[in-house]
C-alpha cells in the first residue's frame, strides 16, 4: 500500500513542524517526547488486572487500558510507543499517579469525591457492589450476622473504610483485619482467621476462582455500597483525559465492551480456568448505554 510508505514521510514532516495543530501539554506532551507511556496495573485484582501464570498482565481493566493506549498512539501519530508496566498497590497507586511515575492506572480503583481532590478519573469502566465472601456452611447471610466475628478486608480500599464505619455505628464488635492485598485477604479467610471477606463483589468472584475448592465459598449480603471503577490519571490533564475517555466510550457504544465483559466474567479465565458466572448487572447495562465519569458516592 502506498499509504504505508507515505506514513514515515508524513511523520517526519509532523516532527519538523513542532507547532502543528495544537500545542501539546501534560501527559500527551510527555508521551510524545519520550516515546514511552507508563501504565499502572494490579497484581491480584482478578479478573480486572492481574498476572497470569506466565507473569503477563491480563484482565478486563487491562484491555480497556491497552485500548486507551492505542488511542493515545493514534492521537499523537506515533509510529512506535514503548509501554512500561508498573505494578501498583491499593496504597501507592494515588501517589504514583500524582508524582508522575505512572501515567495511567486501570485496575480496580474506585472513583470517589475524596480521591478526585488529588487525581482525575476516566469514564467509568465498571460498577460494583461491596459484599461478603463466606464459607457456605458459616450461616452468615448478611452484614448484621458479622457481630463479634473476625472480618478481613484489603487495606486501603473503600470496603475497609465502610466496614470500620459500619462496625462503629452499629456497635457490632467486629474485629477487622486489614490485609495487604486481595490475595492475602482471601488467604486470611481460607485459613480460618476470618469468618468473612468484605470486598467489591466482582473481585470476590475473582478470588473464589482461585480457591482450592471454589464450591465451598459463596458471595452473600446486600451490597453496602455501589462504586464506579475508573482509570486514574493526573489531575487537570484535560487533553489526555479526553483521549482516554473517548477510547473507553467508543468501546462501550460500539458493543466491544460487552464482548470484553463476557470474556472476563462469563467465560473461563486464568489462572484456574474457572468461569466467574457474574451476570451483567443493571448498573453495567446502564453504563454501557450511557458512558459517564461520575462517582457514585
Amino acid at each position: 500500500m502506498s499509504y504505508r510508505r507515505l506514513l514515515p514521510a508524513a511523520l517526519a514532516l509532523a516532527l519538523a513542524l513542532p507547532a502543528g495543530a495544537a500545542e501539546l501539554t501534560g501527559t500527551l506532551k510527555k508521551v510524545k517526547e519520550s516515546g514511552t507511556i507508563t501504565l499502572g496495573h494490579r497484581e491480584s485484582s482478578i479478573p480486572f488486572s492481574y498476572y497470569d501464570d506466565q507473569q503477563h498482565v491480563i484482565g478486563y481493566s487491562q484491555e480497556f487500558m491497552l485500548h486507551a493506549v492505542d488511542a493515545v498512539k493514534k492521537d499523537l501519530k506515533l509510529a512506535k510507543l514503548d509501554v512500561k508496566l508498573l505494578p501498583v498497590t491499593s496504597q501507592n497507586r494515588i501517589p504514583l499517579v500524582e508524582n508522575g511515575t505512572v501515567d495511567l492506572e486501570c485496575g480496580s480503583t474506585t472513583n470517589n469525591l475524596e480521591r478526585q481532590k488529588q487525581v482525575d478519573f476516566s469514564t467509568t469502566i465498571f460498577v460494583i457492589g461491596t459484599r461478603l465472601l463466606v464459607r457456605k456452611d458459616s450461616g452468615i447471610k448478611d452484614f448484621p450476622d458479622l457481630a463479634g466475628k473476625n472480618v478481613v478486608t484489603t487495606a486501603g480500599t473503600t470496603s475497609e473504610r465502610l466496614l470500620r464505619k459500619y462496625n462503629e455505628e452499629h456497635k457490632l464488635g467486629m474485629k477487622i483485619i486489614s490485609a495487604k492485598d486481595h490475595g492475602e485477604s482471601f488467604l486470611t479467610l481460607e485459613t480460618g482467621r476470618a469468618a468473612a471477606f468484605m470486598m467489591d463483589d466482582a473481585l470476590l468472584y475473582g478470588e473464589l476462582a482461585k480457591a482450592k475448592r471454589p464450591g465451598d465459598w459463596v458471595v452473600v449480603g446486600k451490597p453496602m455500597s455501589r462504586e464506579a471503577y475508573g482509570c486514574m490519571l493526573r489531575k487537570g490533564d484535560a487533553p489526555f483525559k479526553k483521549v482516554v475517555d473517548a477510547a473507553i466510550t467508543r468501546l462501550m457504544t460500539s458493543g466491544e465492551a460487552a464482548k470484553i465483559y463476557a470474556k472476563w466474567f462469563q467465560h473461563p479465565v486464568p489462572p484456574k480456568g474457572l468461569n466467574l458466572n457474574f451476570p451483567l448487572s443493571d448498573d453495567m447495562k446502564a453504563l454501557f448505554a450511557h458512558p459517564n465519569d461520575k462517582a457514585l458516592d
Partner: peptide
Amino acid sequence: RQSQQLVDYTAQPY
C-alpha cells in the same frame, strides 16, 4: 500502616 491509612482516607500522601 497508619500513615498508609491516612493516605487512603485523606488522599494527602505527602
